[in-house]
């Protein structure tokens, strides 16, 4: 099994340094393999630098791929984090 989810980045600054850190930190807690797909790039969501260098701006869509024992839980928590704007102001 593998879960594929498309999600929009809604925090104003996009995936800059702090959100990238938070996302990588969250994904690091799961045993599943987790990737982010954007345009032609596929990177591991557990690497903060790789996420940062995707340079994902506000309002763009990314695809999350999760595969492993805890893929469901991981996907849910990732969605939650992105929807919470990474705790930034609106």
């Amino acid at each position: 099994m593998m879960i594929k989810t498309q999600i929009q980045i809604i925090n104003k600054l996009g995936l800059h340094a702090r959100p990238s850190s938070k996302l990588a930190e969250l994904c690091g807690q799961y045993s599943s393999n987790i990737w982010i797909l954007k345009d032609d790039n596929k990177i591991s969501a557990k690497n903060m630098m790789d996420i940062l260098m995707l340079a994902v701006p506000h309002k763009s869509k990314i695809t999350i791929l999760a595969e492993g024992n805890d893929e469901k839980e991981a996907t849910n928590q990732i969605k939650k984090l992105i929807k919470s704007r990474f705790g930034e102001e609106e």
Partner: peptide, 16 residues
């Protein structure tokens, strides 16, 4: 502080 957190994350990143 937050800038040091970013450095710490980078250290743990596969890239380093």
């Amino acid at each position: 502080e937050s800038f040091i957190d970013i450095h710490l994350m980078m250290l743990e990143d596969n890239n380093f």
